[in-house]
């Protein structure tokens, strides 16, 4: 037993260290949220737009500062640029800038709105996806509060949105954005059967940290943010 004691101590320390690392390790993952990229509000939800000139300056700052942009599933740490809803101005105003600066972005599409007025068309989605710079994720099919629907409706929302996007893009869809940022344990559990990652609307809170990859916090980029503050956000 005496001979084994040093070994037991080493194993104990290693076990403890591993536990501490496991509990405290948080990858540095920063997820930015945009909605519409336009000079004026695309509809009555005024607050959810950033002007193209500002968006371009922000993408230029990312490039100048050698910040690597990522798709979900590539790496845990890094900068993720996301858009919610799938407004058509993402194609007309954001996509040219995305191509110019070579940044990777993920657009969370409300799939029932594909090919409807003001939203992305199937052809635009395909072209953006084929560029290799735009990945598409689900923002559900009908943009309901997912905490208020039953299990079968939840499954329908996830299945339809995922299948629709996979049919249009020909690519596997692995990430979800919760409509309005509403989720609960039931929603995250069901979502995890369909997606590897899910993003939230708000910043970090207790539930985020308990939900792992299925409630990743995001930061909303305000329309009037100064570029220095934007860089500070990307390099906290």
């Amino acid at each position: 037993m005496k001979k084994l004691l040093p070994l037991l101590i080493i194993l104990f320390i290693l076990g403890l260290t591993t536990t501490v690392i496991y509990v405290t390790y948080k990858p540095s993952r920063l997820i930015l949220t945009y909605h519409s990229i336009s000079e004026t509000a695309p509809n009555e939800y005024y607050d959810l737009f950033v002007r193209p000139g500002d968006f371009e300056a922000q993408m230029a700052a990312i490039l100048e500062n050698n910040i690597q942009t990522l798709f979900f599933g590539e790496k845990d740490a890094g900068l993720f640029i996301t858009f919610d809803d799938g407004y058509e101005d993402n194609y007309y105003n954001a996509f040219p800038i995305i191509k110019q600066y070579g940044v990777k972005v993920t657009i969370f599409m409300i799939t029932s709105l594909i090919d409807t007025d003001g939203y992305l068309t199937s052809a635009q989605i395909r072209e953006m996806s084929d560029s290799g710079l735009v990945s598409f994720g689900s923002h559900s099919h009908t943009h309901q509060n997912l905490t208020k629907i039953d299990e079968s409706q939840l499954i329908e929302e996830f299945t339809t949105s995922k299948k629709t996007l996979e049919r249009v893009t020909g690519k596997h869809v692995t990430v979800l954005s919760y409509p309005y940022g509403y989720y609960n344990n039931k929603v995250t559990k069901t979502a995890s059967d369909f997606f590897d990652y899910a993003v939230n609307t708000a910043g970090p809170n207790i539930l985020n940290s308990l939900s792992g990859n299925m409630a990743l916090p995001r930061i909303i980029i305000p329309r009037n943010i100064e570029i220095s503050k934007f860089i500070n956000k990307c390099f906290p």
């Binding site: 009555e44 939800y45 005024y46 607050d47 959810l48 309005y180 940022g181 609307t201 305000p222």
Partner: peptide, 13 residues
């Protein structure tokens, strides 16, 4: 601003 943006998310709802 984040709170204002949330108000407009809720307007959608």
């Amino acid at each position: 601003h984040e709170l204002n943006a949330h108000a407009f998310e809720l307007k959608k709802l």
